[in-house]
Design a binder for these strands. Structure first.
Length: 546
RNA sequence: GCGGUUGUCGUCUAGCCUGGUUUGGACGUCAGCUUCCCAAGCUGAAGGCCGCGGGUUCAAAUCCCGCCAACCGCACCA
């Protein structure tokens, strides 16, 4: 049952359409549903793959970055080291009378009682009860404090104490492989490692359809660089990004500023960060979200993750939900690599060699010397070569250039080891899918049209016999086979009135429909109809392949 | 997890307050006919033990309780 809102707003219509046309829907419906899980349908899978591909064309390929695929299950030690086990849980205080739950540390600090990171669960329990902190809901003063861990827990192998977690982000799978990956990248930074996969978070209350899921798709990139010399690509000086950064936060209006300007003015702490925001803006635009419906908002201290020195969220506006995060950009510094290095005792660094000075030596080609100087060769070889203005001399004899080689050797080099800094763009794929469909959805003459961008559904086409007659159906099948051979996903529909079939395809987002009619049987041409304009052109089917 | 609201074919809904034959309609879907270009026309069909479980009653979609799910608010979203 789909009844997300009490009235039919655009989001509800989009969610209904997403289900009926096979994009996505809530999972486990025949069991009554389980909150926080969605199934991606046939059309959704197609679109998801294309969004991933588009993302790679913006973030991975242009910079020669590498993509990996690491396990979903992580040993507890890894997430302990990364700080997730300690930071991914919250102390929850439960009121003994009404059962309301609050963050224990928030309750205490709101009552003027000092708490720190190191305040234990038991201490908070005592503090709450001894100071008779009142329940904001019912006024009672008896509390029980428990930990709520936001990660899914499991066991690795048969031993209960060998604990594992489903990864809350794909990033840690990259950090733990840093050493090998740096080798594969031949020791050089900047190095970008991308990963597309699932993440898992045991949310207390998943909400807003696909926005907060317990299991979700994410696309992450860890960019490792030298903080003293970022070597970021040139930043755009002309385009304007809407940045709701710390300094303009109070006004509530984003400042329109170029990526270059934002970096130069110190609004963005890293040039790579500026570069990725620029890319992200263009990427989300390519998905069909207008500029005015996007913004970047800075996460202030306290709102940020434990590992981040600066964070910007990329948000997309939905009429029903307001500004909604689709991507996060965290300046993770050297936090993660240092943590894993400390835990494992491994050295996770970049080794940079710089040549300070070189030394030239002259090496004689003895065979040549013997051939040319039959008489003097022994004294030439036993003497020290001497470099004069007009050439090389040995024992006072000038040598020709084929009798020696000049070799340049490193005399002194500087070796610098450093832990690289990390800038991380992290995208929520499910949210992007929702935003893409939301902004593609529209109406024309009372009909629904899903105007998905071509990059998202370009190689999908419908083949339709105009009327349900044997020879037309056969001809249409031929064309279908031909298109499939060249990589098209073909939808074949022979049933019912043509107008209805067009309408159905428009609503499902299929960009082109090829119709086989009477003339096709005579000269082989077909009509091709565009989803958005409804215009038709007569072409040869092979024209599509160009 | 707390509080509020809600849950009836795929979708939108009528019926619920005031228990009483097989829960009715529209759209969609499917089949047949028809049909040479935009949800057209004709005929027919499938699809709901009324979210799940229990209780009250001679009798429950309807009243009561529990659970699940969705939405809104709080909290949470590292």
């Amino acid at each position: 049952m789909i009844n997300f809102f009490r009235y039919m707003d655009k989001l509800t219509e989009v969610l209904n359409l997403a289900k009926s046309k096979g994009y996505f829907w809530p999972s486990y419906e025949i069991y009554g549903g389980v909150s926080g899980f969605y199934t991606i349908g046939p059309m959704g899978s197609l679109v998801l793959k294309n969004i991933e591909d588009l993302w790679k064309s913006y973030f991975v390929r242009p910079n020669g970055f590498l993509e990996i695929d690491s396990p979903d299950i992580m040993p507890a030690r890894v997430l302990k080291a990364s700080g997730h086990v300690d930071n991914f849980k919250d102390p929850m205080a439960e009121c003994a009378k009404c059962g309301s739950k609050y963050r224990a540390d928030h309750l205490l600090s709101d009552s003027g009682i000092q708490v720190s990171e190191s305040t234990s669960i038991n201490q908070m329990n005592e503090l709450l009860n001894q100071n008779k902190v009142k329940c904001p809901n019912c006024g009672a003063t008896t509390w029980t404090v428990k930990q709520f861990l936001n990660m899914f827990e499991t066991n690795i192998g048969p031993y209960a104490d060998n604990k594992g977690y489903l990864r809350p982000e794909t990033a840690q799978g990259i950090f733990v492989e840093f050493k090998t990956l740096l080798d594969i990248n031949r020791g050089k930074v900047p190095m970008g490692i991308a990963q597309i996969g699932r993440g898992y978070r045991n949310e207390i209350s998943p909400r807003q359809s696909m926005i907060r899921l317990r299991e979700f798709h994410m696309m992450e990139l860890e960019l490792f660089m030298d903080p003293e010399d970022e070597k970021a690509p040139a930043l755009d000086r002309d385009m304007k990004l809407p940045l709701l950064h710390e300094k303009v936060m109070e006004k509530g209006e984003p400042e329109l500023i170029s990526p270059y300007g934002a970096y130069k003015n110190g609004i963005l702490k890293s040039a790579w960060l500026a570069y990725f925001l620029e890319k992200s803006f263009k990427f989300v635009m390519a998905l069909g979200v207008p500029e005015s419906k996007q913004r970047f908002i800075e996460k202030l201290v306290g709102e940020r993750a434990h590992y981040s020195a600066q964070t910007f969220d990329h948000e997309v506006f939905f009429d029903e939900m307001g500004w909604t995060e689709v991507a996060g950009f965290a300046y993770r510094t050297d936090y993660d690599l240092k943590s894993h290095a400390k835990e494992t005792g491994q050295e996770l660094v970049v080794i940079e060699k710089k040549t300070i000075s070189t030394r030239k030596t002259i090496k004689l080609n003895e065979k040549e010397v013997k051939n040319t100087h039959k008489k003097d060769w022994e004294s030439i070889i036993s003497s020290v070569p001497e470099s004069r203005e007009d050439g090389i001399y040995c024992a006072g004899i000038k040598l020709s250039s084929n009798e020696y080689k000049i070799i340049e050797e490193v005399e002194k080099e500087e070796v610098r080891k450093f832990v690289p800094y990390v800038v991380e763009p992290s995208f929520g794929l499910d949210r992007l899918l929702l935003a893409t469909i939301y902004y593609a959805y529209g109406k024309k003459d009372g009909r629904n049209i899903l105007s998905l961008p071509d990059v998202i559904l370009g190689k999908v086409v419908a083949v339709l016999p105009l009327v349900s007659k044997k020879d037309m159906i056969e001809k249409a099948f031929e064309i279908k086979a031909m298109l499939e051979k060249s990589g098209y996903f073909v939808i074949f529909d022979e049933k019912g009135y043509i107008g209805k079939r067009y309408a159905r395809l428009d609503e499902a987002g299929i960009p082109k429909a090829i119709t086989v009619d009477g003339q096709t049987l005579e000269d082989g041409t077909v009509t091709i109809r565009d989803r958005d304009t409804w215009n038709q052109k007569r072409i040869r089917p092979s024209d599509l392949l160009v």
